[in-house]
């Protein structure tokens, strides 16, 4: 199939950026990123610089790939990362517009590559359980209700790709942050420092320059792991309770 690609090109964070248009010959069994490989190989063959895009596992779990395809983070399929989109979902002659995640907190590095270290800093601010190696008791010492563990897992499946931020009209990181807060809050092991954690993580999230949640729900709809905005409600509740009840100001 013959496709027209309009791809965002941007030298660095300071550059204004623009769209380049390419023609590419794709095969229906190709993955989206393999189609991008074909484009890049042809650019290299012409001695031109290939389109910079990030990718790694290509099986939908590492969270590296990030393209806004025709206005939708990770493209048109529900619960699917960019690397798992296949060209059979497109038709001969289609025009595809490819843009990077756009958010102040995710500055563009080059072309479609953005800097997502803000997410790392949010985790560093408190997205963990404070135990050292070797301090653990036996794994079966605390029973956890099967359903609760499953709900924790639902939240813990987040791959940190940032599609929630990309999809949100406010570029808010609430779904990402709340997924970690929820995962740890649901596990008895994580409940101990829950109050401190939720305050610290939200403080960091705010400092990173993400927008504020207005309950649009686009994050949930575009999340490749289909993480629920129930997690955001849980975090809101926890935060208010934590601020009102804790004796220490954070």
């Amino acid at each position: 199939m013959k496709l027209t690609l309009k791809v965002w090109r941007q030298k660095n964070a300071q550059d204004k950026g623009h769209f380049d248009t390419f023609k590419v010959e794709a095969h229906e069994h190709m993955s989206f990123l393999e189609m991008m490989d074909v484009l890049n190989e042809s650019l290299i063959a012409e001695g031109k610089e290939p389109v910079a895009f990030e990718h790694d596992c290509r099986e939908g779990i590492c969270g590296t790939c990030n393209m806004v395809i025709n206005g939708r983070p990770h493209g048109p399929m529900q619960g699917t990362t960019t690397c798992q989109i296949h060209m059979r979902h497109y038709n001969d002659g289609d025009t595809i517009v490819i843009e990077p995640w756009r958010a102040k907190a995710f500055p563009v590095i080059k072309d479609l590559v953005v800097d997502r270290t803000a997410f790392d800093r949010i985790i560093q601010s408190g997205g963990y359980i404070s135990i050292n190696t070797g301090q653990a008791q036996d794994a079966n010492a605390i029973p956890i209700e099967k359903d609760t563990a499953a709900r924790a897992m639902d939240a813990a499946e987040c791959i940190g790709c940032g599609a929630c931020v990309a999809a949100c009209p406010n570029a808010s990181a609430m779904l990402f942050t709340s997924a970690k807060v929820s995962h740890l809050a649901l596990m008895p092991q994580g409940r101990v420092e829950h109050s401190r954690r939720v305050q610290a993580m939200i403080k960091q999230m705010d400092e990173e320059g993400f927008g504020m949640c207005s309950n649009v729900g686009a994050c949930e709809a575009e999340c490749p792991k289909e993480i629920s905005i129930d997690n955001i409600a849980r975090m809101n509740r926890s935060y208010v309770a934590s601020v009102l009840a804790s004796e220490k100001a954070v």
Partner: peptide, 22 residues
């Protein structure tokens, strides 16, 4: 054996039985 203890203490949501054990 220690790895499983460690991972559970870190909050890794392993699959569980109805009784709450791993």
């Amino acid at each position: 054996r220690n790895i499983i203890d460690q991972a559970v203490a870190q909050g890794v949501p392993f699959a569980r039985e109805y009784g709450g054990l791993l």
